[in-house]
Design a protein around this nucleic acid. Structure first.
Lengths: 138, 138
DNA sequence: TATAATCCTATCGGTTTACTAGGTTTTAAA
DNA sequence: TTTAAAACCTAGTAAACCGATAGGATTATA
């Protein structure tokens, strides 16, 4: 399951991407428009800034803005930062690999085999979709 | 993330499927061979029986056995029973649909659009893999 | 100087997860 | 007929995680 954090984060990024001008967008505006608890959203925006997706400007007239072009932001990257691994099991994760305690041999593990396929299918979809793609309303 | 419950359940089913004869397999045997806590596994086996994947025989020499052929058991079915929805968000789930509280319109929701694609990709993989496929050691 | 925004730290109630404990019931074999 | 081995059942529980909320500190603009 996708956490609310990730869901809200994606919605917020898409909201910012949809604006033509590159003026900073306030968290309060996004929170109202997208029905997200403001304080919770603030913490998410902060995380998105610290991980290099957003820049921010403090004080009156401040807000958040995209650092890269929407077309250059792959959804794999967004989800990895907000949610963590894309794989359903750590032992098939490319970026967050962990060995299972049970399972003496991954090569003969039935779950492993299956989850590699699922991972690759998800990776395919999330890798070919950029923020630009999902922000467009069509 | 796949829960341990689901992971253990799949491993147990695969273990049973790998046996040539159709004699009942004890939970204790699976638990030892696959390094799964026995009591925990028992509860999973029970669930797999109640949901129609396994039959059971009580008493000495008892155990669990497959009711259908491994080739007829799709992984979508197994995961839906043990884990729940395959979709990452309830609003794109085919079997466990729920509307989001935020989100006034699913058709213009950026997350919705993306997650439908992910769901379909996963569904494809899990639907074309049967227990027979994943139980084979190749 | 007042205001509006981000930034930071801490806390918290609720839910889920992965078990564990302690039995009861059923069946086969001795 | 007894004994052992198996499934079956109910309950509880420690730890982690989630989705917030609280309360302010800091910074920039008008």
């Amino acid at each position: 399951m996708l956490s609310k954090k990730t869901k809200y984060g994606i919605k917020a990024l898409a909201y910012i991407a949809r604006k033509k001008d590159r003026k900073p967008v306030q968290a309060s505006e996004i929170s109202e428009s997208e029905n997200i608890s403001q304080k919770f959203l603030e913490s998410i925006m902060l995380e998105l800034r610290k991980s290099g997706f957003l820049g921010s400007k403090k004080g009156k007239g401040g807000g958040y803005y995209l650092i890269k072009e929407p077309g250059e932001i792959r959804m794999t990257a967004v989800i990895r930062v907000l949610e963590g691994p894309i794989a359903m099991v750590p032992c098939v994760s490319l970026n967050y690999y962990e060995k299972c305690d049970d399972c003496p041999d991954e090569n003969t593990c039935s779950v492993h085999k299956l989850m590699i396929q699922v991972r690759d299918a998800s990776l395919q979809v999330l890798g070919e979709n950029t923020l630009e793609d999902i922000a467009s309303l069509k």
